[in-house]
Amino acid sequence: MKKNLLKGAAASVIVLTTLAFTTMKKEINIKESNVTWTGKKVTGSHTGTIQLKSGFFHMEDQNLVGGEFVIDMTSLTNTDLSGENKQKLEGHLKSEDFFGVEKHPTAKLVITSVASKGNGTYGVVGNLTIKNITKPITFDLEMKNNVANAKLSIDRSKYDVKYGSGSFFDDLGDKTIYDNFDLEVNLKF
């Protein structure tokens, strides 16, 4: 009886220890989440949205430890223009001049490391893949009440998106498009 009691207690300790350090996968609600982009040029800027195809966070003891997100590049839309101008800009952004969505319909972000900064804020390091080119990226992410927010600045020239870039072409003048574009991310899980 004593042996069975000790075995049962030992098994309980092992199970509780395992549960205490279990990694949990939290799926992103892609319908309630949104990603807004802003691209700037010498003469102004454009804004729009892009949708997630899928995504999840890995949590351990209520702390962020990883995650992976697939972005649907075909969903790229412009929100500051209308009519023919809107259609032209969206078509150009989806073309080979920019993101080549026919050949590269998705982009991907994989979180590779995370450091807590306190109060639900994390410093995140990840690998971002656009047009089958993967580069490291860092950003801060805030998590509270099953919502995660982040602002990212991405240098498009690192992903072979060169159109209108002053880094690659001379004498563009007021037709220069800045290399960095910004993403404002609001994820619900």
Score class of each variant (00 low, 15 high):
residue 108 K to L: 08
residue 179 D to L: 00
residue 48 G to P: 12
residue 159 Y to F: 15
residue 81 L to N: 09
residue 23 T to N: 13
residue 150 A to P: 09
residue 176 T to F: 03
residue 47 T to P: 07
residue 87 Q to A: 15
residue 105 P to G: 08
residue 84 E to I: 13
residue 55 G to F: 02
residue 174 D to Q: 02
residue 36 T to M: 06
residue 13 V to L: 15
residue 94 K to T: 01
residue 172 L to K: 02
residue 170 D to Q: 05
residue 69 F to M: 06
residue 20 A to I: 08
residue 62 Q to I: 03
residue 148 A to P: 02
residue 43 T to P: 04
residue 109 L to Q: 04
residue 111 I to V: 10
residue 15 V to L: 14
residue 57 F to Y: 12
residue 78 N to K: 05
residue 5 L to G: 00
residue 44 G to L: 06
residue 39 G to D: 03
residue 59 M to A: 07
residue 81 L to F: 14
residue 178 Y to D: 03
residue 129 T to E: 05
residue 176 T to M: 03
residue 183 L to M: 06
residue 16 L to M: 13
residue 102 E to H: 09
residue 135 K to R: 05
residue 105 P to Q: 08
residue 61 D to R: 14
residue 62 Q to V: 04
residue 114 V to P: 02
residue 175 K to H: 06
residue 91 G to V: 10
residue 84 E to M: 13
residue 4 N to E: 11
residue 148 A to C: 10
residue 139 F to P: 04
residue 17 T to V: 14
residue 10 A to E: 01
residue 151 K to T: 15
residue 99 F to A: 02
residue 148 A to Y: 05
residue 73 M to D: 00
residue 62 Q to S: 10
residue 86 K to N: 14
residue 126 G to R: 02
residue 159 Y to D: 01
residue 124 V to N: 03
residue 84 E to S: 15
residue 110 V to C: 02
residue 92 H to Y: 01
residue 155 D to S: 10
residue 102 E to W: 07
residue 59 M to H: 06
residue 99 F to G: 02
residue 96 E to R: 08
residue 74 T to K: 15
residue 157 S to G: 09
residue 97 D to G: 08
residue 123 G to W: 04
residue 54 S to E: 14
residue 65 V to W: 01
residue 98 F to M: 06
residue 130 I to S: 00
residue 106 T to H: 09
residue 167 S to K: 09
residue 49 T to K: 14
residue 118 G to A: 05
residue 182 D to K: 00
residue 182 D to C: 05
residue 42 V to N: 00
residue 185 V to N: 04
residue 157 S to R: 05
residue 122 Y to S: 03
residue 118 G to W: 01
residue 28 I to V: 15
residue 153 S to T: 14
